[in-house]
Design a binder for these strands. Structure first.
Lengths: 242, 242
DNA sequence: GGGACATTTCGGCGTCCACCGAAGCGTTCC
DNA sequence: GGAACGCTTCGGTGGACGCCGAAATGTCCC
């Protein structure tokens, strides 16, 4: 056993795979977007990085191969997320070496608030409003089950009373109810035809209004009053606690 | 390049420069050689990575531009070294990802368990085993201090008795002892040359065995008995509590 | 000054890869 | 069933870059 300069023990690490994974702007953007632990569909990542869907797909497969990212298929979407907490830790540590890209924080954080508070997940309500309503309706017996939400008779009456097109949702060929996993709340919320009907009603009635250019929603004062008085949901409190 | 679309919160990091720096075998080799804090002339690095002097020079300038490495001219030599301790820390953390093979589902979570229980952090023991040993050795007076662990005479004798190459660690050019912050335990554990010597001994003696294709370790029965009888560390309990 | 040596700079070559559009596959919705 | 949609795979193209040898720069020593 020769000991030239500096006995180096242990194994060398091969940084090339991880390094290559980090080495392009698009992939760096993806990782930044996922650093908060959210799971996002491929298309959203593609738009954010301003590359074509096909390019994004290739990038994502590189990240998956490098072990930094995993995905989960859900319907026709593929939700991508960091592989585990350890990756987030390593990236955060590595971030101390990388230059922080100076960006305008205010607008974005305002928007993040909107999104967390209430937003559309395609066609149904999500965010704290979505999960809050779902929880409340399960509690009061309008919906039954947890992973497989189903509509009770009381629920049909109750939702009908606030103007939701329950009949349309039930007779639609689309699944009446479905539970969708929210990426900020990490809890299921009502989707499917009924979820879409609820969303449409909330928009029509002016309880929520679309935030321009995005899927974020503002809950109006009348909407706030409704959810508080009818189901005890206090969105202001929720926002503070979240 | 501009990113007009979704500029994100002020926390964005541009990983591309550091990623590119890590993305080639030669540069990865250089960094591994420098991880122990030594300074080495360009030619030596070139020979170690088996590239021409000119190629090595180009690689080194990339590493310098990325801020990972600095140099110091001395006569007709240029001695290269890691830029600062932060770089070493970041690389060590990143090293935990370097070997991570993309594993999915069940096997992945099994592996996560292994990793939390015992693993190598670059070249020294980490995880519950690493922190447990460090704590025990501080308690019994083998190591002194918390952030700056130092080896006592009793420690030198004790570690020598179980076959650790204490002399080699002490005379190494590398810092004998160093405290490394574990990312799962969030507590310091022994690193540096002595940490590496301990790790090597645990492997040689068969107290731990490398988990195939990964940085995880299995603690063998003899290893379990040793740490329990000698220092009162009960890994089974620790594993349950974690 | 001159020769040996360590390192960088330069020019050129070959490969890799980021990118896109088109096509294919699976899911959702009517 | 059929249309719309999200995503991936495939084929092709252009630019980036890793590699080397040769030449240039700088230092040491006689």
């Amino acid at each position: 056993m020769s000991r030239p300069y500096g006995r180096r023990m242990g194994r060398d690490r091969d940084f090339t795979a991880v390094g290559r994974a980090l080495s392009t702007p698009a992939r760096s953007t993806f990782l930044n977007l996922l650093m908060d632990g959210t799971r996002r569909p491929a298309g959203e990542l593609a738009r954010a990085a301003e590359v074509s869907a096909s390019t994004a797909s290739e990038h994502l497969s590189v990240l998956v191969d490098a072990g930094l990212v995993t995905y989960q298929s859900q319907g026709r979407h593929r939700y991508y997320a960091l592989a585990d907490r350890e990756v987030a830790t390593a990236l955060e540590t590595l971030g101390t070496l990388a230059d922080a890209a100076p960006v305008s924080g205010y607008r974005r954080s305002r928007q993040a608030e909107y999104l967390a508070a209430a937003r559309f997940c395609y066609d149904h309500l999500a965010g704290r409003l979505g999960t809050g309503l779902t929880d409340a309706w399960v509690r009061c017996g309008w919906l039954a089950g947890r992973d497989e939400l189903s509509l009770s008779d009381a629920g049909a009456v109750g939702l009908g009373a606030i103007g939701v097109d329950v009949d349309g949702a039930v007779t639609s060929r689309r699944a009446t109810t479905r539970a969708c996993l929210d990426w900020t709340e990490r809890r299921p919320h009502l989707a499917g035809a009924l979820g879409a009907a609820v969303g449409a009603r909330f928009l029509d009635a002016g309880w929520v209004v679309r935030h321009r250019s995005g899927r974020g929603l503002d809950v109006t004062d009348s909407g706030r009053r409704l959810v508080r008085d009818a189901w005890g949901i206090n969105l202001a409190d929720a926002a503070v606690s979240g």
